[in-house]
Design a protein around this nucleic acid. Structure first.
Lengths: 297, 297
DNA sequence: TATTTGCCATAATTAAAAATTATCAAAGCG
DNA sequence: CGCTTTGATAATTTTTAATTATGGCAAATA
């Protein structure tokens, strides 16, 4: 046995409203027999008469009235589906799950949030802050829509766009502020404080200093840039931090910040998403917006 | 542009649940391309992607999730329509609008109500008590489903079934109880009290007495059998009432009731409905039930 | 009462939609 | 690499729904 269709319900509603097959058919822009047949088919499927066809007029049966009340709700629901789509189409709305690595999130997000909220008022932005490896897994599994991290990622299934270059700056104890700025390479000779393993920034810092690899030293590896700066302030050594973290992290610490001589060491920050993502258009737009927000710093 | 169909929603729901075109198609008992095409069509109509087709799995988009939540409601609504029909089919339920003339209603209905409620527990019985002419109009206009009144009606658009014969009895002042029962015809010589114009029972009484027509006499025509009996009790004259009214109307009045000699004057009470009514089957059943209830008096 | 008219049902046919089978291309996997 | 899985596409067939034409019934008209 076949199933009820929305078309039948639309015809039904027209006929219930008009009480006249011909006019109802015209209202639906179909011929009268088309409507007659669909109504007949519907009644057949239900096993119940919906209309009483009198000589002078077509009337709803008691069951037809009940049916009509309920059918109206179904039709309205179907129409709302289309309206949902229309609304969603004309504006990027819904949910955006964005992953950001910890050495970027606290410094970039405040600006990005503001810009995103202004551009897409109806967008629900969910942020996940974690290490690159986890971001990649979650992105791949569809639990994130995009991620902001250090490029390159070089996953063929991801599209990546660069956002900005971020220089690394030297953070030394306040007392050393007057000393000449050492070259990045010469940092390997100093007590260089690093983030824990897993942070890409740890590897980037080591790479800048041309140090191939270092065994993690318990108690010496910090879990955040903030801790790192505090450790420098306590005289435990020197460190590198990304430029963007400077205003926030060095404000209340007794440390001196120094830029390296050109060419400054730096990393590329970018945004990635699945090549298959249906949000690609919007994500490109979001990337532009993030780039703007970061540049206007 | 075409419209969303319930079939598309069913396919959508299957795919959302399975995350796999092949399995979803199997669940719907169709081929995989059939389902693929319908999903594609649906996405095209919405102008929005519902699924992200990754290499390893098919995932709902954020919009797809919203859509799914709403779509589920629409599908459930459609299914409820079928359930409504199934329920209504297996039992006479809904609403029965029954018209009854005033000279029958008060005496017959108590019994009929009980019988109907026992037989059709889910039936909502609405009674309209008014004169025959109004009943006929309202029945014709579809504002009533059936009517109980005195036959014959002889409208070709109505089907009529007899229910029972109802004798007329003589009501006299208590003091006249010992007198011989006059013949019906001889009542024309007495002070015969009648109902107001419009009551069929007025005409039936006159007909029984072989009185062709009488001008209404203000203040002498009663608006109900109850009043009529009270007037007899007050010594204003004699009257006829239908047998069925005797127990109720003569209980507390100082009147004497006498049956006429055979052949007793009587009227035929029956039930009518539109020949086009979709309730015909059930109405025949109701008529049987009313006949039973009346006979068991 | 005969006639005409309005209105819905039915039939025959055509048009459109949706299904099927077969095949392809991309991506994961041993 | 081949091999498998999986979804998209193409060609075709089947099914469904539409159209036009026609018929029949009952009410309104003359």
């Amino acid at each position: 046995m076949a199933n009820i269709t929305l078309k039948q319900l639309r015809y039904f509603e027209a006929l219930a409203g008009q009480g006249h097959f011909g006019r109802a058919a015209e209202l639906c822009s179909v011929s009268q027999p088309a409507l007659s047949m669909q109504i007949k088919e519907l009644e057949g499927q239900l096993g119940m008469a919906l209309f009483e066809r009198g000589a002078r007029q077509v009337r709803l049966t008691a069951f037809g009235e009940d049916f009509g009340r309920h059918a109206r709700g179904v039709l309205r629901g179907a129409q709302e589906l289309e309206e949902m789509a229309r609304k969603a189409r004309e504006e990027f709305s819904g949910r955006l799950r964005l992953g950001v690595i910890p050495t970027i999130a606290p410094y970039l997000l405040p600006r990005v949030f503001k810009a995103l909220a202004a551009r897409y008022p109806r967008l629900d932005i969910q942020v996940r802050e974690t290490l690159t490896s986890k971001l990649l897994t979650e992105l791949d599994e569809g639990r994130l829509d995009a991620a902001i991290l250090a490029l390159p990622v070089s996953e063929p299934s991801f599209e990546e766009v660069p956002l900005f270059e971020e220089s690394f700056v030297l953070v030394r104890p306040e007392g050393e502020a007057a000393l000449p700025v050492p070259s990045a390479e010469s940092l390997s000779q100093m007590r260089l404080l690093l983030l824990e393993e897993g942070h890409c920034f740890r590897d980037q810092a080591l790479s800048v200093c041309s140090i191939p690899q270092v065994r993690p030293r318990d108690g010496f590896d910090a879990s955040s840039l903030s801790t790192l700066v505090q450790m420098v302030g306590a005289g435990m050594g020197v460190t590198l931090i990304p430029e963007m973290a400077v205003p926030v992290e060095t404000r209340s610490a007794s440390v001196a910040v120094a830029r390296f001589a050109a060419p400054e060491p730096a990393r590329s920050v970018g945004m990635i998403w699945r090549k298959t993502s249906p949000l690609i258009e919007q994500l490109r737009d979001v990337a532009d917006l993030v780039r703007d927000a970061a540049g206007r710093a």
